[in-house]
Simulated scan of single mutants.
Amino acid sequence: MATALLLSFAVLLLIGVLISERAHRTVLSTAVLFLVGGFLLGPGAFGFITVTSGDPIVSGLAELALFSVLFTDGMRVGFRDLRTAWRLPGRALLLGLPLTLALTAVFAHYLVGLPWLESFLLGAILAPTDPVFAAAIVGREEVPARLRHLLNVESGVNDGLALPIVLILLAAAGGSNAHGEELLLEIVLGIAVGVIVPVIVLGLERLPFLQAIRSMQPLLAVSIGLLVLAICQATHANLFLGAFAAGITVATLGKGLRHDFEQFGELVTELLKLAAIMVFGALITPAFLFGDIPFAGWIFALLALLIARPLALLVSFIGAKLSLGEQVTAMWFGPKGFASVVYGLIILESGIALADQIYHLVALVIVLSILSHSSTDVVIARRFARSQEGTAAGTKNP
């Protein structure tokens, strides 16, 4: 199985790299390539990849990928960024996130019939967003800077904000051996490890006889991440919150290190994400989508994408100085990111009574999100570009 997975990933990666320039200009998407490729190569189609949700490689890859995602997300949003430009992202995070969670829970309860506890658990899993599936929005200069900053900071922080809620609700649903004080200890210890390790390492690096040369600077951040991962596993601290706290701490205390690590870290994280998306695609079968999910589940998935986040952000942006186009773009580009994939796998392995039903709904929303958001990002970016060109032309010819 390992050989088949490696060969499949290598081929898909090669194709993804070769079409990346065209994908940057069209509706083609690397994420969709790996999702569809995993589906076609998996048991639901050609059967070249044979994986199940209980395979160690699935949980191990998902865990490592999410750790990397949260570490790099934290590196994007140091405390200075949050202090200097917090107003718009704060609206999306402190009001938009809980409203999205609540609306999703309401849809799950009344449409699918989930109990309230499991409905809020599903809402917490699907609340985080990920701009990787809408890269043309956050990576294009023609898109207004405040909109790119809003989506970038929001997606960088909301994974970490949603995780404690997921853990607490999962424990309340009987899916964790850690209850009460033990769960709180795991969360607090994870955050503590994520702060203390970078502080010590960066303090040592500032000593004259221990400074790293410029070419090795990216590996300093990697070593911090690996130390946090190892210590969290050894102490049973929450390694995901440890990763997120470590990323924020490094971004805050080591601004130069953050810049040096940016490209290298993004590439490593992208590789892990794409591998996990391919495996996620291989877990999906036609029977999974059309036999195990009722019609009400499809209605729920559509409402979760088309109503929950847009309505939540519409309320959050009341009084905000955003144009209508910027508001609509922010409301639409709330792709369900990689964190939701891993949270769904955690639920599937948790042993709670409704784990299968929750996972099926999570998987459906993620699939629809990857297909829809990854196919519309370039279109929206071009619209902003045409708008800027029209404004520039009007300025020249009053």
Rank of each mutant, 00 (worst) to 15 (best):
residue 322 L to S: 09
residue 201 V to N: 12
residue 291 G to C: 04
residue 54 G to E: 14
residue 136 A to G: 14
residue 391 T to I: 12
residue 242 G to H: 14
residue 382 R to P: 01
residue 213 I to R: 13
residue 174 G to E: 04
residue 189 L to D: 10
residue 237 A to G: 08
residue 50 T to M: 10
residue 339 A to M: 13
residue 54 G to I: 10
residue 252 T to Y: 08
residue 43 P to Q: 14
residue 191 I to R: 01
residue 132 V to N: 08
residue 248 I to T: 02
residue 87 R to D: 15
residue 48 F to Q: 05
residue 48 F to K: 09
residue 191 I to E: 13
residue 384 F to D: 05
residue 174 G to Y: 09
residue 203 G to S: 12
residue 351 G to I: 09
residue 8 S to K: 08
residue 398 P to V: 11
residue 78 G to M: 11
residue 244 F to N: 01
residue 89 P to G: 04
residue 391 T to K: 14
residue 375 S to N: 09
residue 79 F to P: 08
residue 283 L to E: 02
residue 142 E to I: 01
residue 170 L to V: 02
residue 306 L to P: 01
residue 116 W to V: 06
residue 260 D to K: 03
residue 266 E to D: 15
residue 311 L to Q: 08
residue 145 A to F: 15
residue 9 F to N: 00
residue 301 A to M: 06
residue 246 A to H: 05
residue 293 I to F: 11
residue 247 G to Q: 04
residue 26 T to N: 07
residue 119 S to D: 03
residue 142 E to Q: 15
residue 44 G to N: 06
residue 358 I to K: 03
residue 131 P to F: 14
residue 322 L to P: 07
residue 116 W to K: 00
residue 355 A to S: 15
residue 355 A to G: 04
residue 259 H to G: 09
residue 241 L to G: 01
residue 162 A to E: 00
residue 103 L to A: 08
residue 73 D to C: 13
residue 166 V to Q: 11
residue 340 S to A: 12
residue 256 G to E: 15
residue 214 R to I: 13
residue 384 F to Q: 07
residue 315 V to Q: 04
residue 258 R to E: 05
residue 91 R to D: 08
residue 297 G to F: 11
residue 366 I to A: 13
residue 105 A to C: 08
residue 284 I to T: 06
residue 98 P to K: 00
residue 132 V to M: 12
residue 114 L to K: 00
residue 224 I to T: 04
residue 190 G to K: 03
residue 181 E to G: 09
residue 293 I to K: 12
residue 259 H to T: 10
residue 81 D to T: 13
residue 50 T to P: 04
residue 210 L to E: 04
residue 391 T to D: 14
residue 137 I to C: 09
residue 101 L to G: 02
residue 35 L to H: 13
residue 368 L to K: 01
residue 60 G to R: 13
residue 200 I to S: 09
residue 396 K to P: 05
residue 255 K to W: 08
residue 231 I to Q: 03
residue 238 N to A: 09
residue 5 L to E: 04
residue 148 R to T: 10
residue 48 F to G: 03
residue 219 L to R: 02
residue 275 A to R: 05
residue 231 I to R: 04
residue 39 F to A: 12
residue 211 Q to I: 06
residue 52 T to I: 11
residue 192 A to C: 06
residue 194 G to K: 03
residue 113 G to E: 02
residue 173 A to N: 00
residue 169 L to V: 08
residue 157 V to D: 01
residue 38 G to S: 06
residue 382 R to A: 07
residue 131 P to T: 09
residue 94 L to V: 07
residue 298 W to H: 13
residue 372 S to W: 04
residue 124 A to F: 10
residue 288 F to N: 02
residue 375 S to V: 05
residue 229 L to A: 08
residue 241 L to R: 00
residue 321 K to I: 08
residue 91 R to A: 03
residue 260 D to M: 07
residue 155 S to D: 01
residue 267 L to N: 10
residue 20 S to Q: 14
residue 199 V to P: 10
residue 145 A to C: 09
residue 375 S to T: 09
residue 149 H to I: 08
residue 328 V to H: 11
residue 92 A to E: 07
residue 383 R to A: 14
residue 342 V to L: 12
